[in-house]
Amino acid sequence: MATLKITQIKGVVGAKKNQKDSLRSLGLKRIGDVVEKEDRPEFLGMIQAVSHLVEVEEVN
């Protein structure tokens, strides 16, 4: 199964509550934080909600 490398590139000031919650659930706390998550529908939904705040790369 593929792994996604998620990097937060923008801050959450002014973001909606659901976007802040999605970032926190992904494990991102501040700009520059990087996490690796499995390519699963739960994570893809959270990423879609904050797509303007994060950068996603696929890692094999």
Rank of each mutant, 00 (worst) to 15 (best):
K10H: 13
K5P: 12
L26V: 01
V35N: 04
E55A: 14
I9P: 09
K20T: 08
A49M: 12
T3G: 00
L4M: 13
Q19R: 11
K10R: 15
D39L: 12
Q8Y: 09
I9W: 08
I9D: 00
V12I: 13
E57R: 04
F43S: 00
K10C: 11
D39A: 07
M1G: 12
L23D: 02
E36F: 09
E38Y: 01
K29L: 15
R24W: 13
I47K: 05
R24H: 11
G32K: 02
V34H: 04
A2S: 11
L44I: 11
E42D: 05
P41Y: 00
K17D: 07
V34D: 08
M1V: 04
H52D: 12
K5L: 15
I6W: 13
A49D: 02
A15C: 15
L44Y: 06
V50K: 07
M46E: 02
I9E: 02
P41V: 02
L44D: 00
N18Y: 14
G32Y: 09
L23Q: 04
T7P: 14
L44G: 03
F43R: 00
V56S: 08
L44K: 14
Q48A: 14
S51C: 04
P41K: 03
K10I: 08
V34S: 08
K29W: 06
V12C: 12
I6D: 04
T3S: 07
A2C: 09
E36R: 04
L4W: 04
L4N: 05
N18W: 14
I6Q: 09
M1Y: 00
E57P: 03
E38H: 01
V56L: 13
I47V: 06
G14P: 10
K5N: 07
L26K: 03
G27V: 02
G11M: 05
L28K: 07
V59K: 06
V50H: 00
K5T: 12
K20A: 14
E42P: 01
S22N: 10
V54R: 05
K20L: 13
N60G: 07
S25D: 09
Q19W: 09
L28Q: 07
S25W: 07
E38C: 00
F43G: 00
V35S: 01
K17L: 13
V54F: 11
G45P: 13
R40E: 09
V56P: 03
V56R: 00
M1K: 02
A2T: 08
R30L: 11
G45D: 00
E36H: 05
L44A: 09
Q19L: 14
L4A: 09
F43K: 01
V54K: 01
L44P: 01
L23P: 09
V50Y: 03
T3D: 10
N60R: 10
L23I: 01
P41W: 05
Q8N: 02
K29H: 10
A49V: 13
N18D: 03
E38P: 13
L26S: 03
L28H: 00
S25N: 07
N60A: 14
K37Y: 07
K37G: 12
G27P: 13
A15R: 13
R24N: 12
R30S: 12
E55H: 15
K5S: 15
A15S: 15
P41Q: 01
G27C: 10
L44C: 08
N18E: 05
Q19I: 15
K20D: 06
E55W: 11
S25G: 14
K29D: 11
R40L: 14
I31V: 14
